[in-house]
Structures are given as structure tokens and as C-alpha cells.
Write a protein that binds this DNA or RNA. Structure first.
Ligand SMILES: [Mn+2]
Ligand SMILES: [Mn+2]
Ligand SMILES: [Zn+2]
Ligand SMILES: [Zn+2]
Lengths: 137, 137
DNA sequence: TCCCTTATTGAAAGTAATTTACAATAATTA
DNA sequence: TAATTATTGTAAATTACTTTCAATAAGGGA
């Protein structure tokens, strides 16, 4: 049983063909996929998969932190499989290919300074980089 | 003529009461406002303002970098007036109050490391902090 | 292995957000 | 002031997403 299947089981959720299809597609993707894309690709694995189920699967996976939503200037409904732990995202502006990398705490100094200046108490952060991947350069 | 009015003029756009209303509301806001909120508040300044016009104004202002869209886990259509230059956003998770702060280049080292590790060439970044503001603590 | 329970599914309808079409209006500029 | 044309509001259209509900299938226990 793979990791995501265990996570689902432990949460009292069932391992279904539909969920398996969505997960498999996400696992093979190298860029964020939107619900419609997940449906199109998922249909090859599960012929009866429906868009509603894609939405519902994503909602569940997101709750369980199995996937993360990637925000871009216009489009905000792309999903990416999440590696464990706090991560940052780097997206290629040419082909959309995305990589995640662990959030080294290089931000600690910046955050401390911001806290002092603004009076806010910083809890979390979101860092997303945009650039050009090796293949697209 | 205020700065945004000059920016509009120079772009060959007209200064209208509707745009003035949206701008005024944004200027007074201390948290990101969504189109519906902008309409509600803007109607007090321009009685014939419509939602379509709010959308169109935001689109224009965003193109001219006069406003920025603030992304949050679920909601992504809040708009904030942009200060000049590269900025980061810090949002209070209790009251939604937002502040922007200049993007000191503390990220240079992190970015250099990521470029080396991933082969990507990083062009821009997005940093958004979440926390609790002074009043809400 | 076969039930039984109930979580999950798909179809269809419903709601919310955003965009487009188009004729009327108002900002500019000559 | 008059002419030009960008901008507006109304209404309809489109898109994104959610809800409802009866049918189905996962998986725990006999
Ligand atoms: Mn981090
Ligand atoms: Mn920065
Ligand atoms: Zn690329
Ligand atoms: Zn977003």
C-alpha cells in the first residue's frame, strides 16, 4: 500500500479507482494540473471518472496535505503532489514545469525584521519562484 | 492630478468617476477587497457604479501595476493598492488587515542556491507572509 | 467468500463568479 | 462648443464550482 493510500485509510476514507486515477495522474505530472486536465488524463485510467469526483478528490487530498494548490497571476487552480514538509514552489514560465524544494530557513532573518517593523507576529509564509527551467533556456 | 491619474492619462485612458470611486475605496482600505466589496463601498461615491465596471477597472489597474491581487489559500480575488517597486505582502489571519513591505534582497542567497540545485534560472518571486497583526494579538 | 453498512460516485440541477455584446453616455481634445 | 471615441450599464452568456440524490462499490465482519 503506497503512502497516500495509508494516509487515506488512516483517515477512514476508502481507496477507490477514481481516487487512484487522480493520484496516478498527479504523480506523473511535472506541472500543476487543473481539474479539467486531471479529468482528461484520469479518464484513460478510469473510464467512468467524472469532474465532480475530481473536485471531490482534490478537496480531500488537500485536506490531508497530499496535494497543494499552486497560485499563479491569473490561474489559481493547478494542483501539485506535495512532498512532505514545508516546501516552496518554482515554476517555469515557458512550459509550466514545476519543482518543489524544501524551505530552508533563510527567511528567518527577513521575517524577524518584518515582525519588528510591522508589529505583526508572522506565522507562516508562502514563497513561489518563477523562472525558466533548464530545458527551456 | 494624483499619481494614478497620471499613469492612466499617459496610458491613453480616461479618468472617470467610476475609476475614481474604485481607486478611492482601495486607497482607504487596509485589507484586500474583492470586487463585490469594492462595488458596495464604491456605490457611496458613485451611485451608478456597476460590478462590471469594477471588474474592468481592476483589470486595467492591474495591467498598469496600480493594484495587486492578493492570493490566499481559498480566496484569490482580493485587491490591494500597490506601492511602487517590488513588494511583499503580510496579511493578518484574524482581521485580514494587510501591509506591504519592500522586498529587501534577503532572498538573493536562497535564490542562488535554488538555481544551482534545480538548473532553473529564477526571474521573479512572490513572497507572502501570514500572521497576526498588532491589534489582533 | 459473502453480506452488510455506508462512503463514494455520476447525472443533473443549482449557484456564484466572471466575461461578452451592444447601445447609450461622458471624457477628452481640437 | 462640437466631434471623436473610450467607457459605461444592462442583460445575456459563459465558466467554475457545489449540491442533491439515488445507485454503486469498498472494506470490515460473519
Ligand atoms: Mn519557507
Ligand atoms: Mn522580494
Ligand atoms: Zn520550462
Ligand atoms: Zn491564487
Amino acid at each position: 500500500m503506497s503512502t497516500w493510500e495509508e494516509t487515506l485509510s488512516q483517515a477512514g476514507c476508502r481507496i477507490t479507482e477514481s481516487r487512484r486515477a487522480v493520484m496516478t495522474v498527479l504523480a506523473q505530472a511535472e506541472r500543476p494540473l487543473v481539474p479539467q486536465e486531471l479529468l482528461a488524463l484520469g479518464l484513460k485510467l478510469q473510464a467512468t471518472l467524472s469532474l465532480v469526483t475530481v473536485y471531490r478528490s482534490l478537496e480531500l487530498f488537500e485536506e490531508l496535505s497530499l496535494v497543494r494548490r499552486v497560485h499563479q497571476d491569473t490561474k489559481c487552480q493547478g494542483y501539485l503532489l506535495t512532498a512532505a514538509g514545508h516546501r516552496h514552489v518554482l515554476i517555469c514560465e515557458k512550459c509550466g514545469r514545476a519543482v518543489e524544494f524544501p524551505g530552508q530557513d533563510d527567511l528567518a532573518a527577513l521575517i524577524a525584521r518584518v515582525e519588528e517593523r510591522t508589529g505583526y507576529q508572522v506565522k507562516t509564509h508562502w514563497l513561489q519562484l518563477r523562472g525558466v527551467c533548464a530545458e527551456c533556456q
